[in-house]
């Protein structure tokens, strides 16, 4: 099938789905439902576009919609701090790194074929979807009382939670140590040995 036609069908179907989703959200929960539907559509639509687009860089840009949508969902859950951290780390940091990695690929990849493992991917996807539906159907979704979202900002709350005597300082610091070790290890592996450098003409 023609590439442009494929694009049109895909984006048309996506826009239709998003509209239906927004309508359903508005009907189910008013303004809050609409906002939820919007952010959910950004998240899911962004990931679908990310898979669909043939150019790697475009896929990476589609991820921005996904990350921003997730941040929006966090805001709806009144977790402003995590929402902002999501934007700062994923959009401002990780996505820039991904783009840095893939940006030198050619912009026009119309000849890129669907991967041979497509059937396998569909199987895996169906399996994951089955598990997800199963979990969604059987899990208890009640929110415990003490976890009710509060109207106040939660930066202070998170900080206090960290610093309490039975808080999370030690696990947090341990995670930081693990990350530092990983970083040093990566630098060590990536670093060229001094001996490798010398035959190429020394210091330049």
């Amino acid at each position: 099938m023609d590439h442009t036609l494929q694009q049109r069908i895909f984006y048309g179907a996506l826009a239709l789905l998003v509209l239906v989703g927004l309508g359903a959200g508005l009907a189910a929960g008013g303004g809050a439902g609409l906002a939820f539907a919007l952010f959910a559509a950004m998240t899911i639509g962004g990931s679908l576009m990310c898979i669909w687009e043939r150019s790697v860089v475009r896929s990476a840009f589609c991820l921005m919609a996904t990350f921003t949508g997730v941040a929006g969902l966090f805001i709806l859950l009144e977790s402003d701090f995590i929402a902002m951290a999501q934007i700062l780390i994923y959009v401002g940091g990780i996505l820039v790194l991904i783009l840095f990695g893939v940006m030198l690929t050619p912009p026009d990849l119309t000849e890129r074929q669907l991967p041979r493992v497509f059937a396998g991917l569909i199987l895996v996807g169906a399996g994951v979807a089955w598990v997800a539906v199963k979990v969604a159907a059987t899990a208890r979704w009640a929110v415990p009382d003490e976890m009710q979202p509060t109207a106040e900002s939660n930066a202070r709350e998170i900080g206090v939670g960290f610093l309490r005597a039975d808080g999370y300082v030690v696990p947090f610091e341990l995670a930081a140590v693990v990350l530092t070790v990983a970083l040093v290890g990566a630098v060590y592996i990536a670093r060229r040995k001094r001996a490798d450098l010398e035959p190429q003409g020394g210091e330049s």
């Binding site: 402003d80 951290a85 934007i87 959009v91 401002g92 940091g93 820039v96 900002s153």
Partner: peptide
């Protein structure tokens, strides 16, 4: 979260 928001949103201009 004023400062945090400024830092987060202005970092997306890079994209």
């Amino acid at each position: 979260l004023g400062v945090f928001m400024i830092l987060a949103l202005s970092s997306t201009t890079t994209i």
